[in-house]
Design a protein around this nucleic acid. Structure first.
Lengths: 124, 124
DNA sequence: CTAAACTCTGACGTTGGTGTGAGAGTCAAG
DNA sequence: CTTGACTCTCACACCAACGTCAGAGTTTAG
């Protein structure tokens, strides 16, 4: 299928799909005239990318670990080692947890500012 | 004092201080030669700005509510109405809380991916 | 007077996932 | 053949708070 159809099927914008290819997340074939030609499996692949992006991973990390999810396109191929993938995912999760901590601290500080009003709460 | 001294006193970079002025958070006088001349109160003001920034507010919002913290420079002037300020701060806090929720959901999703391994966890 | 230290105003770079055209080629239908 | 829908490749815009040069003027210590 061409990029417009993939976009409609996945709800992902054409621009985003081209960006995914640029980042090495997608590798469509090309027609003689240069049009991208996607396969049926790419629908699930794009959805998987969306899932990982919504989980807070960036495209670089996704590009690094995406092949670990690749079942070869058909069979239940026993997953490659990819212990490295787990490590990177856990590192990403820990960054997110730290980010949550920071935000929690910030909201608490903001809450204090709101409650106490315009006090010179400049301890930092 | 000049910008370098204010920077040393507050620990905020010269570039950041110029940026604050550009955003309307600071309004130093100028010497005939064009040098910024800050007053003693600006140290506390910069610290207050830092506090609000670390609380997750952006400069635009800070610019809008900063005058509500202004005590006139001396007396315990009863704070102006500025109910609007409280509203904006609470709105900002709620945005941050939503962001925390999103991140929490994402980390949970990422955790599930890590635990279950490369399963086709593409529900979204 | 000179050199070091400081300050000034631009103005581009950063980070990441797109939005939004510009200008041009391709393809299917009438 | 022509129109319209679709696609292509650049390439700038965006958001935020700065970092970091460049080139030039100012001030200060010796």
């Amino acid at each position: 299928m061409k990029i417009g159809e993939l976009s409609r099927r996945t709800g992902v914008s054409v621009r985003a799909l081209r960006y995914y290819e640029e980042q090495g997340l997608l590798a469509p074939r090309r027609t003689p005239s240069g049009y991208r030609e996607f396969g049926g499996g790419d629908v699930a692949l794009v959805e998987r990318i969306q899932t990982l992006l919504s989980a807070g991973l960036n495209t670089e990390l996704i590009a690094g670990v995406l092949h670990c999810f690749d079942d070869g396109g058909a069979g239940p191929t026993p997953i490659p080692t990819c212990a490295e993938m787990i490590e990177e995912l856990e590192a990403a999760r820990e960054r997110m947890l730290r980010r949550i901590d920071d935000l929690t601290t910030s909201t608490a500080l903001l809450g204090a500012i709101i409650e106490t009003g315009p006090s010179p709460a400049v301890s930092a």
